[in-house]
Design a binder for these strands. Structure first.
Lengths: 160, 160
DNA sequence: TATTGTTATACTCTATAACTATA
DNA sequence: TATAGTTATAGAGTATAACAATA
């Protein structure tokens, strides 16, 4: 028989148990991610980079001259969805699109000096936000969590 | 000084390191959740419940006669956003809205027989999906993960 | 034929604000 | 005044499909 996690009427005996959702990893992962994202946005404030824009900038800084196609693949999103993100980073003067000799289809992305500086500052803010938010976790717990998250992520065959 | 996680040019020495994102829990949590959600939807198939609709149904099953306001609070979403979810569950004949004596503003939500049956079947499918997807994790790892996720979730003051 | 960047478009999820009917 | 449910609306974030330029 399939596991039946929770009897129907738990209100009386176990008022703290909200529903079967509590034993589902997907549900708890979503709630945890929502909490992290909320704090991320609060930490970066009005006018700060959104998580996805920060991620894109991080990859451009780490991979100078990366193409938009490669970047979209690394982020796990469609090329079409990346356009608005790169538009925003270009508008902020954080990177430039430049044509490369040899293949005139490609737009090589390079972070500007301003973009590099903004990235380093933002990264420090993001790291501070995570350290503060996850202060109740031990170093071992953080390490274990990261290992598990990467394991789960890589169950997706289309990832990377 | 703030920690500087990654030097600028890692391509040569560490081709596997994609960027600082790899050490950020928020980023890895998002990628892991996307993988889980994708598999959840694939497991439930065309016409299956979405994660949020399944969550709402779970809470209605566990809490007969719950109000929409209480349900929204438990799910961590706005009352207005719940309307479409309840509409869908009502359209599927999985629950009924019924007025309660004493306060005619409230709509008590009760799962139908069909809704209870569909919920139990869907729950079994969801649990099978998680067991399959997370097969590489040990029981200890799953337990640790869950504890950490709940800890993170509860850093949000507005949660619960 | 295939690929890069782009646009047009639509769908999901969520939030804010305002309304109504009740309390 | 305050609350429950609802509607209207808008904004992220994402995907699919099609296009022009180029390979």
């Amino acid at each position: 028989m399939a596991p039946r996690a929770l009897a129907k009427q738990t209100n009386a005996e176990m008022p703290d148990v909200v529903s079967d959702l509590e034993i589902l990893i997907g549900y708890n992962m979503k709630r945890a991610y929502v909490a992290i994202q909320k704090d991320f946005r609060a930490a970066l404030g009005e006018g700060g980079l959104s998580p996805r824009t920060f991620s894109a900038l991080s990859l451009v800084v780490a991979h100078p001259n990366i193409s938009q196609s490669s970047l979209a693949r690394l982020l796990g999103i469609e090329r079409s969805g990346l356009v608005a993100i790169i538009d925003e980073l270009e508008r902020r003067n954080y990177l430039t699109r430049s044509h490369v000799p040899g293949d005139r289809r490609v737009q090589a992305l390079v972070a500007t000096h301003e973009g590099n500086a903004a990235y380093q500052a933002t990264l420090a803010t993001v790291q501070a936000h995570e350290e503060r938010l996850l202060a109740t976790l031990s170093a071992t717990e953080k390490h274990t969590l990261m290992q598990i998250l990467i394991k789960i992520r890589l169950t997706d065959k289309e990832d990377i």
